[in-house]
Computed example of a mutant assay.
Amino acid sequence: MERRYASHPREVKQFDTARLREEFHIPKLFIPNHLELVLTHEDRLIIGGAFPIAEEIKLDMDLKELGVSFFLERREIGIINVGGKGVVVVEGQEHELDHKECLFVGMGNREVIFKSLDTESPAKFYLNSATAHQSYPTQKATLAEAESADLGSIENSNDRTIYRFIHQNGIQSSQLVMGMTLLKTGNMWNTMPVHVHPRRMEAYMYFDLPEDAVAIHLMGEPSETRHIVMRNEQAVISPSWSIHSGVGTSNYTFIWGMAGDNKIYSDMDPVNMKELL
């Protein structure tokens, strides 16, 4: 598991492109038959991907980094499948996940296994794991079951649908909040006008991007913005002091996950567009 430290906004002002990407950009999540994990010290969120093709993958790692005897001893995890049909086995019970379906697994579950149902169209499980103080039941949600909202407009190039899976009024968790935003054809902007939420950090994973397309992820303090070029199935860490917005060369989908002091999706501090530099 890779470790990323937290960065102070005064330091980030000095970062060049390479350093910015080194600190916040996660370039590869889905390695065949491998579990890829990145721990950020921003609220101790773990961001990862499991890509089982011919083999099962266990949610396992060198646990010295976490100081526990099994991965979910003091953690919970949200899983969204961005590939073909797959199965997540939790304590021997199978949970089938189709494309863009979500599974929450609560604290205390010792065994979690990832499998694909078809090696020709393997599952790709995107993971967010946060620390937990209470155990909540394992629960699945489809797009149809998620709380959804249509936002934006074609005039502003941000006509999109937000699906909330793990949140205050949906799947219950200790602190993890997780969902997905789908931009409609012809729309490129997300989360504009921008905001920050100082009480929670966030991570984005961009996907459904064509091979020759990019998304420009905007971050930084409102008065000191920076950008990171993102390609398909790449993730980015957004500290609590940073804006998190983006624009693509085509429409795309992204998964957002948050951890921090509360689970209130609407707890955010809007930024006046005149203050954005």
Rank of each mutant, 00 (worst) to 15 (best):
G84C: 02
F30N: 03
P239G: 01
I154Y: 14
L182T: 15
I26N: 10
G86L: 00
E65M: 11
S135D: 03
I47H: 10
I57E: 00
L143W: 09
S157Y: 15
G179H: 11
K274T: 09
R199W: 01
P210N: 10
I216H: 11
W189C: 11
F254L: 13
R74W: 07
N169P: 07
H244W: 02
P122S: 04
H95P: 04
D212L: 08
K13S: 09
Y204Q: 02
L176A: 03
E221W: 05
A149M: 14
V236E: 03
R44K: 14
E101S: 12
Q93L: 09
G106A: 02
H195R: 08
K85W: 07
G170Y: 13
G92S: 11
T131A: 12
M188D: 06
Q134F: 09
R44D: 14
R44N: 14
Q172T: 06
V82M: 10
T138F: 00
E22M: 02
V38G: 09
P193G: 11
A215C: 03
I53T: 12
P137D: 00
D212M: 05
S121W: 01
S266Q: 15
D261V: 06
I237H: 10
K85C: 08
T225R: 12
L103C: 09
V271C: 01
D208H: 13
T138K: 01
W189E: 07
V247S: 09
V38N: 14
T131N: 13
S266W: 09
S121L: 06
